[in-house]
């Protein structure tokens, strides 16, 4: 359970104050799949860094599982990142000198897991992302899609409360994008909480809940009815359904989504912002 309340983050840029986040309140329940959408400069990266405990808010409260993050020491925040959050980055951020296996193993090493248990969990994670056959390859011997799958394995090997994916498909071709998205949806179907940060409406449309950021504020928070009704036992029992159905429905979902969002934004000025925002993203 993630609870953000009135989060503000202000940067000083050349003597000018930039409100990267201007009072963001957001609650993400366990097992949810949320896409945070916004153009560059909308504050979505800042939000992701705060949710991931990589950065701290200037104002507001942020609780993970009932724990106020700003009360934690640097060391406790490291432990929290290690145990509760799995990161997936646009740049993959694998250590280039370590093999796929070693990259996935690293968070468990920092956690102090025994060698035997590490071996089991790393292999299990790599099997989940279908990379058990490339265990001893280094990142530069893997394709972009494979590297991102290693990163996914690294994120889920600690069995985190929250998987945080920052533009996970931003550096991938369409085929790998589909692979990764299928994988993420699968993880969600298996009960993981997933926060996906993207500027791409098409990608965002695959999430049952979409939060749109603009100029450091949340301008819309919508749920896709069809998906939220399916967001339960049906998914859990039949993960293949999501994988096969979504690429087809993705396009339609995106257009549905767009029309669905607009009524929620009441002031006219914001409506135009959304349009401009959407235009930027595409």
């Amino acid at each position: 359970m993630i609870e953000l309340h009135d989060i503000r983050k202000i940067y000083q840029l050349g003597g000018e104050e930039v409100h990267a986040l201007d009072g963001v309140s957001l609650t993400i329940r366990d097992h949810e799949f949320v896409a945070i959408i916004g153009a560059s400069g909308s504050g979505k990266s800042t939000l992701m860094n705060i949710i991931g405990c990589l950065d701290t808010a200037d104002e507001g409260t942020y609780m993970i599982d009932g724990q106020e993050v700003s009360d934690l020491s640097e060391r406790q925040q490291s432990i929290l990142r290690n145990r509760k959050i799995g990161f997936i980055f646009q740049q993959f951020n694998l250590l280039p000198k370590l093999t796929a296996y070693e990259n996935v193993e690293l968070p468990l090493i920092y956690q102090g897991v025994s060698a035997h248990e590490r071996r089991e969990r790393v292999m299990e994670a790599l099997e989940k992302v279908d990379l058990a056959h490339r265990v001893h390859h280094r990142p530069n011997q893997l394709s972009g899609g494979q590297q991102q799958r290693v990163a996914v394995a690294r994120a889920l090997v600690t069995r985190p409360t929250l998987i945080l994916a920052d533009e996970p498909t931003g550096n991938l071709d369409s085929h790998s994008t589909k692979d990764i998205m299928d994988l993420l949806k699968n993880l969600h179907a298996q009960g993981n909480t997933l926060v996906l940060i993207t500027h791409d409406n098409e990608i965002a449309a695959q999430a049952p809940r979409r939060v749109r950021l603009f100029d450091g504020r949340i301008i819309s928070d919508s749920r896709q009815d069809s998906d939220s009704s399916a967001d339960g036992p049906e998914h859990l029992s039949d993960p293949d359904h999501t994988a096969s159905a979504d690429p087809l429905s993705g396009q339609t979902a995106a257009s549905e989504n767009q029309s669905e969002e607009q009524p929620q934004v009441s002031p006219g000025s914001r409506e135009s912002s959304v349009d401009r925002n959407g235009g930027d993203a595409q």
């Binding site: 640097e74 060391r75 990142r81 290690n82 990161f87 951020n93 694998l94 250590l95 968070p107 956690q111």
Partner: peptide, 16 residues
């Protein structure tokens, strides 16, 4: 620097 950032993001503590 980047390596250190990655290590810290996935949970390395200062002492590590």
């Amino acid at each position: 620097t980047r390596e250190i950032g990655i290590r810290k993001a996935i949970g390395a503590q200062r002492t590590d």
